[in-house]
Amino acid sequence: MPLFRPPRFFRVSGFHQVLSRGTRTLAGAALLGLAGLAQADGVSALQQFVTEVKSGRAIFTQTVTAPDGKRKKSTTGSFEFQRPNQFRFSYDKPAEQLIIGDGKKVWVYDPDLSQASVRNMDQALGATPVALLAGGDLSRDFTLKSQPAEQGVEWVLATPKRSDSGVQSLRLGFRGRELVGLEIVDAFGQRSVMQFSSVQVNAKLAVDRFRFDPPAGTDVMEQR
């Protein structure tokens, strides 16, 4: 079996299939802006993030490990978000891809194939990692539980309540006031770990960063 497909964070018929050539997780949203927030534990930090961090940007590195634990693939890129419901993931070469949530729809653009898929945001989101970014109801969508510290890092486990989210679990790790790690296990047992750098909290972002206009000649597939 080839290196497994990315975690299915948009677990909806047809739409998730375009997330296919590298790790296309939107889970990194949950990492941004937590440095400097006062917290008693990981659960408190995550709740503060949802209510206090309105925008941000960062550079990310993501490593995906296949279910057998033997195969790995790393990707890099940049990430930006702004509440409510706006985000932008730009994945670098050799597997370029652009994912944009404009507040109403989610676009996934593959420049190498000149293809774009689009779906209404209320259908694309739900009990997924990106819902944390978009302002999802934590108590409705996730069961949160603090976990024992590991090598000085405090962890919180977020388990989706919906069985069709495509995610088994999320683990968010904190060292002091800083969130230092995010681990995602998808429905197939694939593990994804994200690390962020150059984080800017509550950054002022241009409106057009969250707008997508398909380039001429792009084949657009609308998912319903």
Rank of each mutant, 00 (worst) to 15 (best):
M1W: 15
F4N: 04
R5A: 13
R8K: 12
R8Y: 00
F10Q: 01
F10S: 03
R11N: 15
V12S: 11
S13P: 09
F15V: 08
S20R: 14
A29H: 02
A29S: 13
A45N: 06
E52C: 04
S55R: 03
G56R: 00
G56H: 00
I59E: 13
T63H: 09
V64G: 10
V64R: 15
R71Y: 11
K72G: 08
T75P: 00
T76V: 13
G77L: 06
F81C: 04
R83L: 04
R83S: 03
F89Q: 06
F89W: 11
S90T: 11
Y91W: 07
Y91V: 09
E96V: 08
E96D: 12
Q97M: 14
I99F: 03
K105Y: 06
Y109T: 03
P111Q: 11
A116G: 08
N120S: 13
M121K: 08
D122Y: 13
Q123H: 11
A124R: 03
A124N: 04
L125W: 10
L125E: 13
A127P: 05
T128I: 08
P129W: 03
L132M: 14
L132N: 01
A134Q: 01
A134P: 00
G135L: 07
G135K: 09
D137S: 12
D141Q: 12
F142G: 04
T143L: 14
K145M: 12
K145N: 11
S146W: 06
P148W: 07
G152K: 08
E154R: 12
W155H: 10
V156F: 09
V156D: 03
P160Y: 06
P160K: 04
V167E: 02
L170T: 04
F174E: 01
F174Q: 05
R177Y: 10
E183M: 09
Q190P: 00
M194N: 06
Q195F: 12
S198N: 15
V199N: 07
Q200C: 04
N202F: 07
D208T: 13
R209F: 12
F210G: 03
P214M: 10
P215E: 09
D219F: 11
M221K: 12
E222C: 01
Q223S: 09
